[in-house]
Computed example of a mutant assay.
Amino acid sequence: MQFQLSGQHVEITEAMRTHVTGQLDRLNRLDDRLTSISVVLSLDKLQQKAEGTLHTSSGALLHAEAYEQDMYVSIDKMFDKLVTQLRKHRDKVCDKHKAEARRDDRMVG
């Protein structure tokens, strides 16, 4: 999976990079067919903002953002949102394939 981390008005430290890459493992455990993720960390006045855009191999584009006082908390919340979206997407794709398989079985039988 391609990974891009950038910052707007924020210098990306090695600790931030390590924290984000640690969170990527959660996504990879859910689905190993992810193509790329882009994470943008920024500072908006007093709010620390984390944005993430995830591309899946099925063509889906998942996006999440979180605002918090602490950058690490906003990163965690953003990844929580992406995990939720990815689970929902996977369930939708699996349900669709199961429904097609049941329909095909009925036509054959």
Rank of each mutant, 00 (worst) to 15 (best):
D32R: 11
K96F: 11
E68L: 02
E11T: 14
Q47M: 13
Q47C: 05
L24P: 00
G22R: 06
T53W: 02
L34D: 09
A101C: 05
D91K: 05
Q8L: 13
T56I: 09
V108H: 13
D91M: 14
M71Y: 08
R90S: 13
K45H: 12
S42Q: 11
V83Q: 09
L61A: 03
Y72M: 11
S74R: 01
T21F: 01
H97M: 12
H19R: 10
K88I: 02
T56H: 03
V10N: 05
T18M: 04
V10E: 06
V93I: 15
S74A: 15
G109M: 06
I12Y: 10
R90K: 15
I37W: 00
L5M: 10
M78V: 04
E68I: 01
L34I: 10
S6R: 08
K49N: 12
R33H: 13
G109F: 07
M71S: 09
G22N: 09
M1P: 02
V39T: 05
F79M: 09
E51F: 02
G109T: 08
A15C: 01
R103W: 12
H55K: 08
E100R: 13
A60T: 04
L82I: 11
E68N: 13
R87V: 09
G22P: 04
D25S: 13
D76F: 05
F79V: 07
I75H: 07
K49W: 10
V40K: 09
A15T: 10
N28R: 15
K81C: 00
D44K: 11
T35G: 03
T18H: 09
K49P: 00
V39W: 00
D80C: 02
R26D: 03
A60F: 09
I37N: 02
L54T: 10
Q2P: 02
K81F: 07
V20C: 03
L30M: 13
Q23T: 00
M71A: 08
G22F: 08
K77P: 01
S58C: 11
Q69S: 14
L61E: 13
K77V: 13
